[in-house]
């Protein structure tokens, strides 16, 4: 059976037990897009920083793979590491954040690249907590309980962050349509 066809649990077991890195490479290949996209949203489009954090995420995952218990999903576990690295990063570096009245030009994206760039730009309007819950909910398609698992934020707070972020972004979209 090819590595790409194996389950996450099987790949983790193989990566821990074997001396070569083939199984872990498969894990990186499987989740690189999700984690890189997640961090691009959190950094609001700082692609270089996002990719550095994504590299750190997988490097740390490799070092800590033996601690992965398999009670949750590998996807959640990787997102948890990425989120914690992001929190550590913003303790030292200023996060790009726009005020309520700072304008963002929203036009109909013509390509997937433009659509992602726009989504990253929209994240600048949100706080760090709002960015993470909104991205996990809307883009990574996680349930509320999975978001709690990743972020350790209480369920009620997760729901209120999502609600507040939705209002902020809805206002942003409406404003930009008025401008257009």
């Amino acid at each position: 059976m090819q590595l790409s066809q194996r389950s996450d649990q099987e790949l983790v077991a193989l990566a821990i037990s074997s001396s070569d890195h083939k199984a872990f490479t498969s894990i990186v290949e499987r989740y690189q897009s999700l984690i890189r996209q997640f961090l691009r949203r959190l950094t609001a489009g700082d692609t270089a920083q996002a990719d550095d954090l994504a590299q750190d995420t997988f490097f740390m995952a490799y070092q800590k793979l033996h601690t992965f218990k398999g009670t949750g999903s590998l996807k959640s576990w990787l997102h948890t590491i990425a989120y914690r690295l992001f929190l550590k990063h913003i303790q030292k570096h200023q996060m790009v954040e726009l005020g309520e009245n700072d304008p963002i030009l929203i036009s109909e994206p013509q390509s997937a690249l433009e659509a992602d760039l726009l989504a990253e730009k929209m994240m600048q309007r949100l706080s760090a907590d709002e960015r993470v819950v909104m991205t996990l909910f809307m883009a990574a398609e996680m349930s509320h309980s999975q978001i709690v698992e990743v972020t350790d934020i209480p369920l009620g707070t997760v729901k209120s962050h999502i609600q507040r972020a939705k209002v902020k972004l809805q206002q942003l979209v409406e404003k930009s349509q008025l401008v257009a």
């Binding site: 890195h21 990186v28 290949e29 996209q37 490097f59 989504a119 809805q170």
Partner: peptide
């Protein structure tokens, strides 16, 4: 509406990214 804006649109697949991680693992080892 927001779902359409906020979903991931691209698949970010890069062999350089994977190679970079493997190099770091090897160096740490």
């Amino acid at each position: 509406m927001l779902e359409k804006f906020l979903k991931y649109h691209q698949e970010l697949i890069s062999q350089d990214f994977v190679d970079g991680i493997l190099k770091r693992i090897e160096k740490a080892y």
